[in-house]
Amino acid sequence: MSPQAFQRLIAGVTTQLADRPLDGQLAVWLNDTWPADGETFRELAAACRTGVAEGWLCNREGGGIRYGRIFKALPDTHGFSVDVVAMNNIAGPHHVHPHGEIDLIMPLTEGATFDGHPAGWCVYGPGSAHRPTVANGDALVLYLLPQGAIEFTAA
């Protein structure tokens, strides 16, 4: 796996997300289309684990969280930026999603959750906010942000 191959893998997902509203229906569709026990999920999780091990994903660290934006919002990713974080029993910085956020949760520890969600997908709508939290162990989380929009807040 290389960053270029990873981008192609992500583009196979984002091509089907372009122009869809970021809402609960999209979360259901994602989990039905690419379930945590499915091939696409396994490919994405393996690519993320490889990228972290090779140092081209999660290549920054702050506050006990490893993170990194691998791609800005690009035409090749259908206007989504791509970030991956590695977290272990920690809450990250509070932020707002001006256009929403799509998360792929990949537990590294069995039973690890992200904002209470197990392995799979969750979607935050436009204007939503949270303090991203991984509990019950280690997890990788892939974030897709429309137009790369995120606003960190003091809350």
Rank of each mutant, 00 (worst) to 15 (best):
A47P: 11
G51H: 07
G51Q: 08
E39V: 14
P35R: 07
G38I: 06
R66Q: 05
T50C: 11
E54I: 08
L57V: 10
E43S: 15
G51D: 06
N59S: 08
W56M: 06
G64V: 02
P35D: 04
I65N: 02
T50W: 13
T40W: 15
I65V: 06
A45L: 11
R49D: 13
C48A: 08
R60W: 02
R66C: 02
E54S: 10
L57H: 10
G51E: 09
R49S: 15
R66Y: 01
F41G: 11
A36W: 07
T40H: 14
R66P: 00
G62H: 04
G62P: 05
A36Y: 08
C48W: 09
R66H: 03
T33C: 15
L57N: 12
R66I: 01
E54C: 09
G51Y: 07
A46Y: 14
G63W: 01
L44R: 10
T33F: 15
D37M: 12
I65G: 01
E54T: 09
E61H: 01
E61R: 07
D37L: 04
E43Q: 15
G51N: 08
G62L: 05
E39P: 12
D37V: 09
P35G: 03
A36Q: 10
A46S: 13
E61S: 04
G63R: 02
R60C: 01
R60Y: 00
D37I: 09
D37T: 09
G38C: 07
Y67N: 01
G51W: 06
R60E: 02
A45H: 12
A36D: 09
G63F: 00
G38A: 05
G38Y: 06
G55W: 01
A47I: 12
G63M: 03
P35Q: 07
C58A: 04
L44M: 10
A45D: 14
T33L: 12
G64I: 03
G68V: 01
G68R: 07
G68L: 03
R60L: 00
A36L: 05
R66W: 00
V52F: 05
T40S: 12
C48T: 11
